[in-house]
Amino acid sequence: MGKLSYERHCAEITNQATLLVTALNGADLGIQVPSCPDWTLNQLLRHVGFAYRWADEMIRGRHPEVDFTRNLSLDVTAHVDEKASVLGPWIEEGAASLAAALQAVDPDEMIATLAGNPGPRLWARRMAQETVIHRWDAVNALGVQFEIDRDLAADNLTEWAHFALPFAFYRWPEETAVLVGPDHTVHLHATDADCELVLDLTAPRPAVREGHEKAAVAVRGPVAELMLAVYRRRPVEGLEVFGDRELLDQLLTSVRF
């Protein structure tokens, strides 16, 4: 349910990068990105490309753990007035190099680890899905239609639950503390894919179960729309919501990634 193979994740890094670059044809990279309001499209692309190179360096260098000091993707303010003809090939080169590095190692090798998870498997999935979300950011800014297949969207939603959700609890403990309480459970139910997730927020560390359960609040809709909702790229209006709407709103406010 909602989980793709390591090989598919490696392939999607380059596939999603190509789709992103294709959308840039003739684009003004100086426009603001509404879903990432601190960045222009130019800066969003630099963020993606630097993230590829950061993961690539850690995998090729066989770093035992994630080295956040080498991540250049978070401060991209210096990058302005660049052209798609330059950034497009740079994005695709970074994606291809990262995919090749990941394909050359054992998926479960304990390098570039984060929270005890094997780095190759974690970063293959993370970088594929990072590109999916930022491709949406780019095409939304450009007014271009976004398309994604259901399996990839289900994998994205599942990765958000298993990675982004606990990371938010670790990174922003004060903001996420409000989510913890008796019977605080959230059910995400895709109506067009085999993907149902229950987010158990009854303990200080969230737990995730796959399958159908009664929860304090349930959200139903197409899997791609659920994916965009949890990443705060679209409002929940238009999706079916049953139960504790306040808990759902608190979740979407507190968990950002």
Rank of each mutant, 00 (worst) to 15 (best):
A138I: 02
G119V: 01
V66W: 07
V139S: 06
L114H: 08
P120L: 01
D106N: 14
D75H: 08
E65D: 12
H79Y: 15
D151G: 11
G143F: 00
L72T: 12
V86W: 02
Y170H: 14
H189N: 12
A168S: 15
L98C: 04
A141G: 07
F68G: 13
N71D: 15
P173Y: 03
P118G: 08
S97Y: 03
H134D: 04
Q103P: 10
E109P: 02
N156M: 14
M127I: 10
G143P: 04
W123C: 00
P64W: 01
G116M: 04
E130W: 02
H134N: 08
D108S: 13
A95P: 03
V132M: 09
F169N: 02
F163A: 12
W136E: 09
A95L: 05
Q129F: 13
R171E: 14
R125P: 06
V139M: 07
Q103C: 13
A177I: 00
Q129Y: 14
V178C: 12
H187G: 14
E92N: 11
P118A: 15
A115Y: 15
R126V: 11
A99C: 05
I148T: 04
A100V: 00
H79R: 11
T69H: 11
D75L: 04
W90Y: 11
H63W: 14
D106G: 07
A153W: 03
T77G: 15
G119K: 09
A104V: 04
V178R: 10
D81G: 14
F163I: 14
A99Y: 06
P173N: 05
A128C: 00
P120I: 02
Q103I: 08
A153P: 02
A100M: 01
A84N: 01
Q129R: 11
H187C: 09
P182L: 09
R135K: 09
F169Q: 06
A164P: 10
W136H: 15
D81A: 15
W172P: 09
V80M: 12
L87I: 08
S85C: 09
L98M: 01
A190C: 06
A138D: 02
I148R: 07
V144S: 10
F68E: 13
G143H: 03
E65F: 14
R150K: 13
H187P: 00
V186S: 08
A128R: 03
R135L: 09
P107I: 06
S97A: 15
A84S: 10
D67S: 09
V144I: 13
P120Q: 04
R171F: 13
V86P: 04
